[in-house]
Simulated assay, not measured.
Amino acid sequence: MAADEKTRAKTEQAKGKVKETVGRAVGNERMTAEGRAEQSKGDMREAKEKTKDAFHR
């Protein structure tokens, strides 16, 4: 299950980065903000998984 969560985190980060980049390219501030939010969500998920890993060792 942890591998699934880590994959999900990386996917969210990547999708967010793409969305942010496209939003900037077309001048869409909302898309840019959504991309940043999605990246942050992925970052938080990744941090949670790293914390769980640290305590389970």
Rank of each mutant, 00 (worst) to 15 (best):
K19M: 13
E49T: 05
E38Q: 15
R30L: 14
K48R: 09
A37G: 04
K52M: 10
E46W: 06
A14L: 06
K10V: 11
K48G: 05
E29S: 08
E46F: 06
T11H: 15
D43Y: 03
E38S: 01
R36M: 06
G35H: 02
H56P: 09
M44I: 05
T11N: 13
G42E: 06
H56Y: 14
G16C: 05
A3R: 12
A25V: 10
A9P: 03
V18L: 07
M1V: 06
T32H: 08
G27L: 00
A9I: 04
T7E: 13
S40E: 15
G42R: 00
E38D: 14
Q13S: 02
T32P: 06
A14R: 07
G16A: 05
D43S: 05
R8K: 12
E20H: 09
M44T: 10
D4A: 15
G35P: 07
E5Q: 15
E34D: 10
A9W: 02
A3T: 14
D43I: 07
T7S: 14
D53E: 13
T11L: 13
T7V: 11
A47G: 02
A25L: 08
K41D: 15
R45L: 08
H56M: 13
D4R: 12
E20C: 01
S40W: 08
D4P: 11
A14K: 02
E49S: 08
K17F: 06
F55D: 07
E34S: 10
E20I: 01
K6V: 06
G35Y: 02
F55N: 12
A3W: 09
E46G: 02
V26M: 13
A25N: 04
K10H: 11
A54I: 00
V22G: 04
T51P: 00
R30N: 07
K50L: 03
R8N: 15
V26Y: 11
E34H: 05
E29N: 05
E38L: 14
T21D: 09
K6G: 02
E49V: 07
V22I: 15
T7L: 14
M44Y: 12
A33C: 03
K48Y: 11
S40I: 04
N28L: 10
R8W: 09
N28K: 10
K17G: 05
K50N: 08
T51E: 13
G27W: 03
A2N: 12
K19S: 04
A33N: 12
K50Y: 03
T32Y: 07
A33H: 10
E29C: 03
K50C: 06
Q13I: 14
G16T: 00
T51D: 07
Q39H: 01
E12S: 14
A33W: 02
E49K: 12
F55E: 11
A37H: 13
G16H: 01
N28Q: 01
Q39P: 01
K17N: 03
K19G: 06
K15C: 03
A2Y: 13
A47E: 10
E38I: 10
G27P: 01
T11I: 14
K15S: 08
E12N: 08
R36E: 09
